[in-house]
Design a binder for these strands. Sequence first.
DNA 1: ATTGCCTATGCAACTCGTTGCATAGCAGGA
DNA 2: TCCTGCTATGCAACGAGTTGCATAGGCAAT
Lengths: 188, 188
Amino acid sequence: MALEHAILVSLLEQPGSGYELARRFDRSIGRFWTATHQQIYRVLRRMEADGWVAAEEVAQDGRPDKKVYSATAEGRGVLVGWLREPVEPETVRHELAVKIRAAAFDDPAALVPEVERHRTEHAALLARYLSGEQRDFPDPDALDAQQRLQHVVLRGGIEYERMILAWLDDVLATLHRLQAPPPSTPGT
Amino acid sequence: MALEHAILVSLLEQPGSGYELARRFDRSIGRFWTATHQQIYRVLRRMEADGWVAAEEVAQDGRPDKKVYSATAEGRGVLVGWLREPVEPETVRHELAVKIRAAAFDDPAALVPEVERHRTEHAALLARYLSGEQRDFPDPDALDAQQRLQHVVLRGGIEYERMILAWLDDVLATLHRLQAPPPSTPGT
DNA sequence: ATTGCCTATGCAACTCGTTGCATAGCAGGA
DNA sequence: TCCTGCTATGCAACGAGTTGCATAGGCAAT
């Protein structure tokens, strides 16, 4: 379970409210972790009770008050302890891959628009990552340790999206080839 | 929720018991979906109650009896219906990426053995995929539709592992560079 | 002989994660 | 004016997924 740890990292990089964390998890952190605001609020309360984070009420004008959380020294200790334990490689759950194999039991051509839709979304995500890279890491030689580590994670996201795009093209080519198969073998 | 659908695909490709399904989900299906035997048994019972699959008791000698499940026409209909609904792109949850950003708050060099361990495991997985490809798809031009779709999913797994390996090398280089940083800027 | 592993299924308890809804003030557009 | 949407937090209920344990026969190794 790494949601707590992802939150600790995010708060160490920059304190923030539950709402702000939820938005980060949709953006930069979303590159490698996801969570809904419900989960984040619940986990934050537990972490506060455990002393891993501390909250400060902040009044705002024109907006509801918010509780700004920071990681405590104890929270940081928990994170460092976790760092030194091994984690297993992530488990992949790719619904589209299930659909592609399922297409053998229906009309495979019906899947083309769905695959194209995924392609469009992944292309948009890649563009967002690339512009974020331009904005946040314009000079890769002038970064401190924290930024270098953020950057290498972002590069992972970029390469992942590139790989997915190439694969989706492969999938589309495969689907099209099923409709117009190569010259049938003479023996059949 | 796609576990039901992954099970339907697997049973349409080849009927099998819950135990066999669990093993497939650790192997070929494991390329794009995971599940424990607990989940599979529970879901299979529900699917049988809903008429999506049918079970047949099979006695074996030297082994416990097993219940071999097959997808029913109704189950196939459910799968086809799902195929025609859109699914959202998968959410990524990569613990190692969390650790890499967390390393900024500890000694980054301490992460090197962990990253190398992941690299070794991913290299082994890639080797398994490649030998599986050799075994199952030796002649890519002589495949039927179902095999072509299985093959393109496997190619996705292969490209994913290659991309991860390249990224892990990038991560290792980044970690090493943090210890021996480039010549410091004269201005500081 | 005993230990441990493999096949095969399952219960019970728990945690994780999602969904729907509620509150509440402010801002902007039809 | 009303409706929609954004910030900000939260409850309640449900469903998904994990972990630990149990049963039970056969097989192989020590």
